[in-house]
């Protein structure tokens, strides 16, 4: 996974690209701590450049969702498509967080 972030006022955006897998565990936890510390109200995970996610990656999103509840921020997954969208659909992650598919409809 490659990661870049933006923080403006109450809005935090994390742009994830490549594949979200078990190896990204440490970096992802650091990202969540950064979001918690930023004390924002909203956090968007932009997944439009994310090509794949495995079950450990889903686990990290679960941890993010849990942190969003305890630290009072909203979590939004934006631009999901391809394999990532299939996995999120299959696992009904729309019940846990707001999931916005990529407009290209892939």
């Amino acid at each position: 996974m490659d990661l870049t972030t933006e923080h403006q006022g109450n809005q935090f955006t994390a742009f994830l690209s490549g594949q979200l897998k078990y190896q990204d565990n440490t970096e992802f936890r650091r990202l969540i701590e950064e979001i918690n510390a930023a004390k924002v109200r909203n956090c968007v995970f932009d997944l439009s450049q994310l090509t794949a996610i495995d079950s450990a990656g889903l686990g990290m999103l679960v941890i993010a969702s849990d942190n969003s509840e305890t630290h009072g921020w909203e979590i939004v997954l934006r631009g999901v498509k391809g394999q990532v969208r299939k996995v999120l659909d299959l696992s009904r992650f729309d019940k846990l967080m707001t999931v916005i598919p990529d407009p290209s409809g892939e």
Partner: peptide, 12 residues
């Protein structure tokens, strides 16, 4: 058929 994986949320 879909569904949330088990062990994540009791609300599933």
């Amino acid at each position: 058929i879909s569904g949330m994986p088990i062990g994540i949320s009791k609300r599933a």
